[in-house]
């Protein structure tokens, strides 16, 4: 099967594999991410889903928004579950019990189901080398249960379990760098993407589907409920996340890092923080140090990434 041309006009005409009418909040980033992922390819896809917003809102009782085979079993095991499906596919094809139709296997999980409770299951599935892609829609907290802190919650954020209190001003820790952790598994393809750069996201999906073995894609997914932002801001905010280098767009293919979209001008982090109510307390004078600390962390991470990308370039030149 050839790679599908990513022309907006053609894509708009295509069949959507996740239907409208699901019950995600208006303005949620996650269904946009899923739609872009599924639209990027014509391969037959089977998906698993961790318990979470996406899962509870897309398959309720007799209704499903999924036009592809889809399975949810629990919260922490989307990777293990799809690995079982993939193993059965291989087994049945090998035994001649099922026709090989080049089916692709995808797991969707939020940051809670990926960075935290599903981390072990994901790590195991990646190590075992299943031919599958894990896609994390990262909204930076447990939004489904009511905006609790996760290890993906950014520094300073106000959540219901790390509220901006009189003594402790929100989350005091930096977020876990999940994309790099997945890269450390030595799997053939790891990338970070944003629904604001849809072409970049879809190209990454297309590339990943052509690679045999485990793949990991981390996608920022704004949540206006948890981010305390406007309902029509998902794309604008994910764009600002990229432009401030809070969420750099890059890929690590066979260990070689490449920044796929480099902002022309790196915007200050406050541009991303300001429109979000979860960071509001950081703008009061007594918390000025928090803004500095957040900016310094983003700068350090970005510089590190550029170094790694430069090393990748140098390797290629040799």
């Amino acid at each position: 099967m050839t790679t599908k041309p990513l022309r907006l006009r053609e894509l708009a005409k295509g069949d959507e594999r996740i239907s409208h009418g699901h019950r995600m909040c208006s303005g949620c980033g996650a269904p946009i991410v899923v739609k872009q992922v599924l639209m990027a390819t014509d391969y037959p896809i089977v998906a698993s889903n961790a318990t979470g917003c996406l899962e509870v809102s897309t398959c309720i009782q007799e209704y499903t928004a999924w036009k592809i085979p889809w399975i949810h079993s629990a919260f922490e095991n989307a990777a293990a579950t799809i690995s079982g499906v993939e193993a059965m596919y291989r087994s049945l094809v090998k035994q001649g019990k099922l026709e090989d139709r080049n089916v692709k296997f995808v797991a969707f999980g939020g940051d809670g189901g990926t960075y935290d409770i599903g981390f072990q299951s994901l790590s195991g599935a990646m190590e075992r080398g299943h031919d599958m892609m894990y896609i994390c829609y990262d909204n930076g907290a447990y939004m489904n249960t009511g905006i609790q802190r996760s290890s993906a919650t950014p520094f300073g954020a106000n959540t219901t379990t790390c509220p901006a209190g009189d003594v402790i001003p929100g989350k005091l820790q930096q977020r876990k760098d999940m994309t790099k952790i997945m890269a450390a598994h030595g799997i053939p393809y790891v990338a970070q993407a944003s629904p604001s750069s849809w072409m970049d996201l879809m190209k990454k999906v297309q590339k990943a589907f052509e690679i045999k073995g485990p793949k990991f894609l981390n996608v920022i997914s704004p949540c206006n409920r948890g981010w305390r932002s406007r309902t029509d801001d998902a794309i604008a905010l994910s764009k600002l996340a990229v432009e401030t280098c809070y969420w750099p767009l890059y890929e690590i293919e066979n260990g070689v890092t490449r920044v796929t979209i480099k902002p022309k001008e790196k915007k200050p982090l406050v541009d991303f923080l300001k429109p979000q109510g979860r960071f509001k307390h950081m703008f009061s004078p007594e918390n000025a140090g928090m803004l500095t600390q957040a900016q310094e962390y983003v700068d350090a991470q970005w510089n590190q990434l550029l170094k790694e990308a430069a090393a990748g370039e140098a390797d290629k030149a040799e």
């Binding site: 037959p44 089977v46 889903n49 899962e55 509870v56 398959c59 309720i60 009782q61 007799e62 499903t64 999924w66 036009k67 592809i68 085979p69 889809w70 399975i71 949810h72 079993s73 499906v85 059965m88 596919y89 049945l92 099922l98 139709r101 089916v103």
Partner: peptide, 14 residues
């Protein structure tokens, strides 16, 4: 689940 021609959803919320 692997009947690709007749997609099924497993594990709904009820």
């Amino acid at each position: 689940l692997l009947d690709m021609d007749k997609p099924k959803s497993y594990g709904p919320l009820i």
